[in-house]
Design a protein around this nucleic acid. Structure first.
Lengths: 354, 354
DNA sequence: TTGAAAGCGATACCAC
DNA sequence: GTGGTATCGCTTTCAA
């Protein structure tokens, strides 16, 4: 390693570029950053010199001088769940397109790590803005993020103090329930959410949407919510409980998300219950696996939510006075074959598409 | 926003701390960074002043002065696959413990984005070291990463030029196959891998392990590899093909990874084939869902691989002369109930644990 | 043990 | 249009 770097040409700075182009540092800087007057001829010479030297500006020096870091911080509670991973990818590509780096803060809820992230790491302000994914009501954390005096955009969750990108969770759950009602189901259970100690905004909204749809259909007495973490294994376990007793068994399930829905499907099959013949299941997400499980679901596209969040953030970085906006997406119903009219469910086809 | 920042106290720098403590900037710096001589009394006064002012050093200025960024770059092809997400979490927590930031470069294979990451982003050298996860043989990309003259550690893949953390893929597949052979199976198919254009090192090694185990058992003529992407939907689709024709059907499957294995299980159930009664399936990973699907598998713990990678990297950052090492982990067999002796498979139990 | 001053590598204001 | 120079905030010799 040592011998390589000794032979290698010293990394060149803007001073080298200026020298080679026969201009001053200031002119070189102006020519390269594109701000300020430089004659076309000079600009060309400087650019050529930069290319010739393989000049790469030091972002550190730039940041020091300008106060801009060219970097965006992303705070999210998990990275190993479909929704979050997709949002992350959406954010990443939107950022890359604009030449911005992404610093990830994986802040598992309730962990010491999370506290440290908020107390120490974020305080370094190595970002021009922050995207908070699924941080939920936690007011103190939001306070903290806003205290840095840099723009913040939330994905998921409602906050009057930041721009927000989210789906209308209540509406999504309500329409999912409506789909089942339209198929003639009345014994409809809502599965998942409300399992943790804290009140999760997304989960609560979805439960509410379900409740209201049931109430509107005059089925308030049939309302039944079975809590579970928003994960496939937990959805599976909860569904096994739910479905084991034939007398208590519903004819349809609205799952809090696709992972839970798929867990429920697996449980149903394990118990010998045909889906959708014996049980209809609808989810919310349109998860990567939804197609293979032929899952009917309310589709959201987290990748686009991530990209939108970046857009909103950039806007605010460029113009701090830009207004805070909410982008509320309406998921669309994607019908596959995990739902069927009550009592007339067809046995699912067997092929790659499910 | 403007009015807030105007009322707020100006963010304080080390100069303010020094002034408050009644010492010079240099002394303050020494006291805070812990390098160089400072009398205990002075140190205390400086520390107190720093706390009083809520001083947070500017990492940019620090980096500019020291050349250290306090930041590690992580390059990985996906973030939405179990293995990668887990490795990422492992890396993140190890980094946070040491006060280092993590910049993520999600370099989807073959994308323009990926090229840009290598050409432009990495070139900024905003990191003290790089962790490359699953970058595979790509020599040119490795060249590029090494050209920055900063330490690089790979997770997965073998490279004589960087430290590597990986499992012994060949051994894993070979032992997985051995497990099936021991149960009396002979018609064993290897499912997954080898689907893309490029030769994926991990996949190739696993296939080889399978081949050799079969050959050693005198079953070279039974060797059969069905390609598929390492994803659940693809594993599912490939398995549907494989299992549809009863005459061609194997009695056991070694899957290239758990996602493929689970896809195959779902396919089997869809086709009415009992697992393990009619078909044994073994995977490699010990995926989050393995338990719920009662999948027998060769366990690896990617989270720990990530943490190990961080350790190796730090060591090299602190001592560039530190030797390059390979950490090769041996997965252990976790027997659940997706595998059974040939012809005597029990019907799986029905409970939460699978 | 402490302080003064010279960088680190850019940007940006202000003359020319 | 272009160049000189102060500046961003910290670290780090080198004297004292």
């Amino acid at each position: 390693m040592a011998e390589v770097s000794e032979e290698a040409t010293r990394v060149s700075g803007i001073a080298d570029v200026a020298r080679l182009a026969g201009v001053s540092k200031s002119t070189a800087s102006r020519a390269l950053s594109g701000s300020g007057y430089v004659s076309p001829a000079t600009r060309e010479r400087v650019t050529a010199a930069a290319v010739a030297l393989g000049y790469v500006p030091s972002t550190n020096a730039q940041s020091l001088a300008t106060g801009r870091t060219q970097n965006v911080g992303v705070v999210m509670p998990y990275v190993n769940r479909w929704f979050f991973a997709e949002v992350l990818e959406g954010i990443q590509s939107a950022l890359l397109e604009r030449g911005l780096d992404l610093t990830l803060y994986d802040a598992t809820p309730g962990s010491d790590r999370r506290r440290r992230i908020f107390d120490d790491f974020l305080a370094r302000k190595r970002f021009d803005g922050l995207i908070a994914v699924g941080l939920e009501p936690q007011e103190d954390e939001l306070d903290r993020m806003l205290s840095f005096d840099k723009p913040v955009v939330s994905v998921i969750g409602s906050s009057p103090r930041t721009s927000v990108v989210t789906i209308d969770d209540e509406d999504a759950a309500s329409r999912a329930t409506g789909h089942l009602l339209a198929l003639g189901h009345t014994r409809i259970v809502f599965l998942g959410g409300g399992a943790g100690a804290r009140d999760h905004h997304v989960e609560a909204s979805r439960v509410r949407g379900y409740r209201e749809a049931m109430a509107e259909a005059g089925l308030a007495h049939e309302v039944r919510h079975l809590p579970a973490t928003l994960s496939m294994p937990d959805g599976y376990a909860a569904a096994v409980d739910l479905l084991s007793d034939p007398r208590e068994r519903p004819t349809a399930i609205v799952a809090a998300c696709d992972e839970v829905a798929i867990g429920a499907m697996v449980a149903a099959r394990r118990l010998g219950i045909q889906v959708p013949a014996g049980l209809s299941i609808i989810g919310i997400d349109d998860h990567e696996y939804a197609d293979m499980f032929a899952l009917t679901t309310m589709q959201q596209i987290p990748r686009e939510q991530g990209a939108t969040a970046v857009e909103l953030l950039i806007r605010q970085i460029e113009d701090p006075a830009a207004e805070v906006v909410d982008v509320v997406l309406k998921p669309r119903l994607v019908v596959r074959s995990s739902t069927a009219p009550l009592g007339r469910g067809a046995v699912p086809r067997i092929d790659a598409a499910g």
